[in-house]
Design a protein around this nucleic acid. Sequence first.
DNA 1: CAAAACAACTTGTGTGTACAAGTAATAATT
DNA 2: AATTATTACTTGTACACACAAGTTGTTTTG
Lengths: 240, 240
Amino acid sequence: MKARKIKNRKYHTIQDFIRKRIQGGTYPVGSYLPSENEICGQFSTTRTTVRKALDELLKEGFIEKEQGKGSKVVERRKSLGLLTVKGFSGSIDYEVKTIVTKGPKITQWDPIIPFALTEEEKKSDCVYFQRVRHINDRPVVLENNWYANDALQVIDSGEFIEGSFFKTLSQAYFIEVMGAEQELRSIPASQEVAKNLGIQEGIPILHISVRFRTSKPGLNLYGDLYCNTTDYPIRNSYFL
Amino acid sequence: MKARKIKNRKYHTIQDFIRKRIQGGTYPVGSYLPSENEICGQFSTTRTTVRKALDELLKEGFIEKEQGKGSKVVERRKSLGLLTVKGFSGSIDYEVKTIVTKGPKITQWDPIIPFALTEEEKKSDCVYFQRVRHINDRPVVLENNWYANDALQVIDSGEFIEGSFFKTLSQAYFIEVMGAEQELRSIPASQEVAKNLGIQEGIPILHISVRFRTSKPGLNLYGDLYCNTTDYPIRNSYFL
DNA sequence: CAAAACAACTTGTGTGTACAAGTAATAATT
DNA sequence: AATTATTACTTGTACACACAAGTTGTTTTG
């Protein structure tokens, strides 16, 4: 019941306005935003304020700036953990196909999740779906996903935009991933994992438990991934 | 022979000046920088410019800002990959002891490095050292490290500040890590790894190959890590 | 026709100012 | 004595302006 005070920062409203236009496709990836001076006119403000808003969008990874040209909308692929916000494809150089093997449905929370659930999450129903990522038509990653139904409705896998759950969250619900926590383990493949990935039981598997925090209060996405890294190592990179 | 043009950005000189004072210990971790107005006086400039410099240092992870109080120097632990810039301790909750098992010495480049070396690195000699990280007095991580001797001299392990190689680079050489690329694999423990970590051969091990890019042109640090994750999973988190 | 100069845009850097908002110690009030 | 107001600092937001520097298309020049 804590009514959070909403502060009226001018640069924040400009930032939100432009972000929504990017998320909604009004400013598609690859296009250029209106010039800073044009935005100044639209919001009756100065370049200082507009530049502050654009600077925030730059930090959020929505745009890049090019001196002399403008601010370009880019695919938001700030690497979060080992994966990319827009899905799995960004972290691997090969063609990836994703198959939803257990459609989104309501189940119980799985005790395999190593993170502490909030009280709200514990009380809520749980939405679950399973996917298998294929590289060159061979299964490489088995992925279990959960989130609280109180925070977000069940989304049918047929609604997934370009097969991506994160893209759907962004474009259809204006929800962005804000951060992630992970635990990584090297484990022998269980019988179920071996079956799903078409390998022998006991082969070393990279096990990743991840919690994605989102811009929607109360909504966390929990993932449980089993990666066969014998042919395709997981790659990622970070820059300051 | 490309003589890079040096641009005189006022905020850049302020930024460099303060960064060096932080690295050198003039502004120790936990202390507060002089106020923005004081810095204005020292450099005969306006708050706009000083704030731009501080904003860059904020992005670089050297300071945090507290409204009404000041800019505080913080331990720089932007998570780079699975490790922390200041060493291994940041990524694990337990007490960590590091033992250098093969002192820094000149050897040949090891073909196990999965990254493409530059021509300069190939031509240069290679400095190598090996460490074992212990948690609660049990060996958990075996770590091989290489870098080009042309880019940086051999540093004796006795010189390591607080046992940390990265801390030494920062405080004694003003070299900072700027980014990293990684490859992760789950593999069975080889005979040598098993011996060093005191486990059975064949146990699943998390293998991390990493290249750290530094602020010193031409200097990359290559790492080859073998982590026993049965008792201590590798953790990390990211926030935008 | 080709190269150079120009014009018209863009973002980047910087000065100068004003007030809002948060913090902490002190002074005034109850 | 405890609470409240004041004061003097800090950083945060915003306005208004000026010029530097990079990009692109057009015009002028040789």
